[in-house]
């Protein structure tokens, strides 16, 4: 059915590829990942192509975007962590473009699948562990042992700290995924209300039910418009939060404790 709110998340094979029994098909999800990456980087390259000293409109916008992400990252990690800035900027741009592509009708929302967000979150998680140990050695594990805790409750606290450390990638991935999934389902459900309420008035009998049905369809339409605006806010905000948390997690690995 057209109003099925889950239908939009279905993965479809565009170019079936099978490598030794492993399904590596080029799907609609892959298509929109490629689109997000290509359009995102292409837009930035096109905007900064002329490299004017006094930037034109597009170059100015690109520079503001760069400065915005750079400031966010530097505030969280400090100048020392700027080696991770390309990663954070890429994540931000990719997630932002994917979320904005998802706002087009009939387009696929890449981040509404938890496997996509979990891949990014787990990459950041293992990068933090790997870089933290490579850089600080076993001192890295001191982040699980807070200071000034009585010895009696210390094992308990360390257990909670370790559990909370391993919860971070789950929370990191789930936040983006759940926001995109829930937002798009809500949009579809309210859009479906408009159709079904309108249909019921056409085939329904009484005048009262027609007035009530049309009135409610208009309310649902207004709600859909408002929700669309909210979804645009969420699309940008979730990209920002994902990138900002990446910076904050990386600061654990970079800094030996001078927060």
């Amino acid at each position: 059915m057209a109003t099925d709110p889950i239908h939009q998340f279905e993965i479809k094979r565009i170019v079936p590829i099978d490598v030794g029994g492993v399904d590596l098909s080029f799907t609609n999800s892959a298509l929109f990942m490629v689109l997000s990456a290509v359009v995102g980087s292409g837009l930035l390259m096109w905007a900064t192509m002329h490299r004017r000293l006094v930037p034109a409109r597009m170059q100015s916008a690109a520079e503001m975007f760069y400065e915005f992400v750079a400031k966010m990252h530097r505030d969280a990690v400090g100048s020392e962590g700027m080696r991770f800035f390309p990663l954070v900027f890429t994540l931000f741009l990719f997630i932002l473009m994917a979320n904005l592509f998802g706002m087009f009708p009939y387009f696929f929302t890449v981040n509404s699948h938890i496997i996509v967000t979990a891949t990014m979150a787990l990459f950041v998680f293992f990068l933090v562990i790997g870089f933290g140990i490579w850089r600080n050695g076993f001192r890295f594990f001191k982040i699980f042992v807070p200071d000034g805790i009585p010895v009696a409750v210390l094992p308990f606290i360390v257990l909670i700290e370790i559990l909370s450390f391993f919860t971070r990638p789950l929370s990191h991935a789930m936040r983006l995924f759940a926001n995109m999934l829930a937002g798009h389902i809500t949009l579809k459900v309210f859009g479906g209300f408009v159709i079904s309420l309108g249909q019921s008035t056409i085939f329904g009998a009484g005048a009262v039910s027609t007035i009530v049905g049309v009135g409610m369809a208009i309310v649902a339409l207004i709600a859909t418009v408002a929700l669309t605006a909210l979804e645009f806010l969420v699309a940008g905000l979730q990209a920002y939060i994902f990138a900002m948390l990446t910076s904050i997690y990386l600061s654990d690995a970079v800094h030996p404790g001078d927060h």
Partner: peptide
């Protein structure tokens, strides 16, 4: 408990974990 610790850290009410003594 771990979730609440994370939430309090997100809200800026508990220090981020560090490797050095304070």
């Amino acid at each position: 408990a771990a979730g609440i610790l994370l939430a309090l850290r997100s809200a800026g009410m508990v220090n981020e974990p560090t490797m050095e003594s304070r």
